[in-house]
Amino acid sequence: MDLKLETRDENGRTIVKVGGEIDVYTAPKLREQLVELVGAGKYHLIVDMEDVDFLDSTGLGVLVGGLKRVRAHDGSLRLVCTQERILKIFRITGLTKVFPISDSVEQAVTAVD
C-alpha cells in the first residue's frame, strides 16, 4: 500500500495529511516531505494521522526526526490522532510525553504550543 501525503497551510500552520501504512519501506517518503517543508521555512507542522492504517517504529523515528528539525528553528510539530491502535505505540515508547496530540485538525490548528 502506498503512502499518501497531502499538504496545505492553515492559520500559520502546515498540515500534512498522511494516509496508508507508515513502515520501514514507506517512511523515507514521509521523511523527505518533512525535510522539504522545513527546508522551505515551514516550522509549525501538524501531522494528521487519522487515515494511517499502520505505524511502526520507523515511522516514529521519522516523526521524531521531524520534531527535532522544527525545534531547531523554534518550531512545533503536533499530531492529530484518535485511533487507539496508533496511540498505543506512542504510549509504549513514551512519546506521548514528547508529541502534543490533538483529537482533530481544527483543535490542532488553534492549539497553543
Binding site: S57, K68, T93
Partner: peptide
C-alpha cells in the same frame, strides 16, 4: 550525524515497541 542518530533511534524504538508490546 543526524542520519546516524536516526538509525540509532529507529533501532532503539523498534526494541522499545517489541518489549512493550
Amino acid at each position: 550525524a543526524e542520519d546516524d542518530d536516526e538509525d540509532l533511534d529507529d533501532a532503539e524504538m523498534g526494541l522499545a515497541v517489541l518489549t512493550g508490546l
